[in-house]
């Protein structure tokens, strides 16, 4: 992919990829990195895009793969640190560990922080549907699964989210809402 093409593609799609990354990571710094990395992958593997799907669905696929890889890496590091942490005397651990994720408070207060506890498939389906407003067919393309599976993941993802909220002892209706934004595409 040429230099101009890449810049033009980024101008068209960077904002939506960044938004999805922000919802997935929980902080704008990691979201910036993840979005940039998505376009770096595009610059290297752009020739393999065959145009059978939309470019942005292809970009979402790259983003989700990168996010999954990052989470796996983060999880492994956290497990290693946990072993070290458990071997330390209890009174030493007064400050948060190096594995503590840096999420912004807006994200922590939002429902997306609870969505992060769901299994990968459900989490990704919810992001693509309710943050990005993709159609079920497009989500099926990104996640490379049948349409019925997408609907099932969305339904069970929402049900799982409700269960998490019930366990936390709060009701979805009590969470802060942000009215005035046009979100008719999402529901």
């Amino acid at each position: 992919m040429g230099l101009l093409d890449l810049d033009e593609t980024a101008r068209q799609h960077f904002a939506r990829i960044h938004r999805a990354a922000l919802v997935l990571c929980g902080n704008p710094w990691d979201a910036d990195d993840l979005a940039q990395e998505t376009f770096l992958v595009l610059s290297r593997q752009g020739s393999s895009f065959q145009g059978r799907s939309s470019l942005y669905t292809w970009l979402y696929g790259i983003l989700l793969n990168l996010d999954r890889r990052q989470r796996r890496r983060f999880g492994m590091r956290r497990r290693k640190l946990r072993v070290l942490w458990d071997n330390q005397p209890a009174d030493v651990g007064t400050t948060p560990g190096a594995d503590a994720a840096a999420e912004v408070s807006e994200w922590k207060k939002s429902l997306w922080a609870r969505v992060a506890k769901l299994p990968d498939g459900q989490r990704q389906a919810l992001v693509l549907r309710f943050s990005e407003g993709l159609r079920y067919e497009e989500i099926a393309e990104v996640l490379e699964c049948p349409l019925g599976t997408v609907k099932s993941r969305i339904f069970h993802g929402l049900a799982g989210l409700r269960r998490i909220l019930e366990e936390e002892g709060e009701d979805a209706r009590q969470l802060p809402a942000y009215p005035g934004e046009d979100l008719s595409h999402a529901v």
Partner: peptide, 26 residues
């Protein structure tokens, strides 16, 4: 209602932390 809330939260987050308008990706 949860689905609507998810969409609201995503829009709010993206309004709080907007993406760079001219990313120097190339």
């Amino acid at each position: 209602a949860l689905a609507g809330q998810l969409a609201d939260d995503a829009a709010h987050l993206s309004a709080c932390y907007p993406a760079d308008r001219n990313p120097q990706v190339a």
